[in-house]
Amino acid sequence: MLVYSTAPLNAVLRLAGASSTVTLVCTAAGGILPLAGCLLLAVVAQRRQSRAVAQRLAG
Rank of each mutant, 00 (worst) to 15 (best):
V3C: 00
V3F: 06
V3K: 12
Y4M: 15
S5K: 15
S5Q: 08
T6M: 01
A7G: 03
P8W: 10
P8Q: 07
P8G: 04
L9M: 10
L9D: 05
L9W: 05
N10Y: 01
N10M: 08
A11F: 09
A11P: 01
A11Q: 13
V12C: 07
V12P: 00
L15K: 10
L15F: 10
A16L: 11
G17V: 00
G17H: 03
S19P: 02
S20P: 03
S20K: 10
S20D: 14
T21V: 12
T21D: 06
T21M: 09
V22I: 14
V22W: 01
V22K: 00
T23Y: 02
V25K: 11
V25D: 01
T27R: 07
T27P: 02
A28K: 05
G31C: 14
L33T: 15
L33V: 15
L33A: 15
P34F: 12
P34T: 10
P34S: 10
L35R: 07
L35M: 15
A36I: 15
A36C: 14
A36N: 08
G37R: 11
G37Q: 14
G37E: 13
C38L: 12
C38M: 13
L40W: 06
L40R: 09
L40S: 09
L41K: 08
L41V: 13
L41D: 11
A42L: 10
A42H: 03
V44N: 13
V44P: 08
V44F: 13
A45M: 02
Q46L: 12
Q46W: 03
Q46E: 07
Q46F: 07
Q46V: 03
R47D: 05
R47W: 06
R47I: 05
R47F: 10
R47V: 04
R47Q: 08
R48E: 09
Q49L: 15
Q49F: 11
Q49V: 10
S50Y: 05
S50F: 05
S50E: 12
R51K: 11
A54G: 00
A54R: 04
A54Q: 01
